[in-house]
Design a protein around this nucleic acid. Sequence first.
DNA 1: TTCGGATTGTGAATTCGGTCACAATCCCCA
DNA 2: TGGGGATTGTGACCGAATTCACAATCCGAA
Lengths: 209, 209
Amino acid sequence: MNSVTIPKATVARLPLYLHALEILAAEGTCTVSSEMLARRVNVNAAKVRKDLSFLGTHGVRGVGYDSSELGTRIREALGLTRDFGVVIVGIGNLGAALANYDGFGEQRFHIVGLYDADPGTIGSKVGDLVVRDVRHMPADIAENNVEIGIIATPAAVAQEVATQLEQCGVRSILNFAQTVLQVEQADVRRVDLSTELQILGYYLRHDQS
Amino acid sequence: MNSVTIPKATVARLPLYLHALEILAAEGTCTVSSEMLARRVNVNAAKVRKDLSFLGTHGVRGVGYDSSELGTRIREALGLTRDFGVVIVGIGNLGAALANYDGFGEQRFHIVGLYDADPGTIGSKVGDLVVRDVRHMPADIAENNVEIGIIATPAAVAQEVATQLEQCGVRSILNFAQTVLQVEQADVRRVDLSTELQILGYYLRHDQS
DNA sequence: TTCGGATTGTGAATTCGGTCACAATCCCCA
DNA sequence: TGGGGATTGTGACCGAATTCACAATCCGAA
């Protein structure tokens, strides 16, 4: 839609700006400066301005950005103008925690399905959804127009689930399993506790962020 | 310790190489090529070699890397030659899930304390630890030589917890709360579901990974 | 109406990370 | 003993991301 492509690094920061902005707006701030945002997101003010410039945003020199308009612009850029269906596969401790996650706020991501393969888990209720047999997943996805899949299964089956998700047409995958997924086209983001800890471990000794 | 500083991007990949290596080793592979690792980690083979060259590693031309020696080298580089004490603050759904996380395998990260502020949660047992009042945290940290703190509290109190952790001498923080923490010196890594979903959302429309 | 302080937007410079290509080296086999 | 296939290590290039610095612009006050 939007003509210019936004650099990956910028895309990754837009949600942070948006969140900072929502907090400021809730506090009644109408105008924000790049400096103000920078402090809250822990980056350089020049970087904020350059990032925002990719949105074709127009702040006002000498004044700053209108916080509500800027919020709208960022939401548009991120595509947060419509709703997204999300499924979670693997309802163990982590999957259940993610299902209960309330951090979406007024966001547009809606969890519409929870799946597991364990008969002991299937049928149990998490939040206001009932865990269904993973074998129902393909049909459900097609029916509900699901676009994002979250994998919270054991590593051993994560790849299989990913392949299946992709076959169902899911193009975006958030992977919490300790595996690097091999996919055809899908966009995968990986979140792994043990990886993060190991990275932190390195910087414990080689200290200079 | 190790003379040369390793680029951040490389550090972030080392845990992936290590994990791939452990799987290969478990399968009985003694020698691995950069190409083999590259496939499993979804990166370029040249990048693998360049990354490993920072470790001063010596593979054997025409042959590859000795998988057990390479594993040792990576572990040394990451500092995984000793144990790390970890505490988790905020034992809600997510905190409890993290406490039960078994993905550490034979890793050296040991969760030695769980803390919460809610009287209803304090005293409950998660895994084989009992959740303690967060007010005991400073004393416990000093006593047990804790180096890493995981924050899984509501966003509203995350900053306060971070400040307290830092005052207790914790220099590494893994932040699951929806906030950007302001810290003095500590190294912070942030993991947030809603941010990840928003990034995925962007690429759903602007598709070309 | 003019001046000063504040803040944006952006070209230019710089740093960082990724990719390519190839010489150097090794093992194995004939 | 020599040659061929395989694979590493790395210099050179390329592109992305960050930072710098400053002209352009705006608001408000005198």
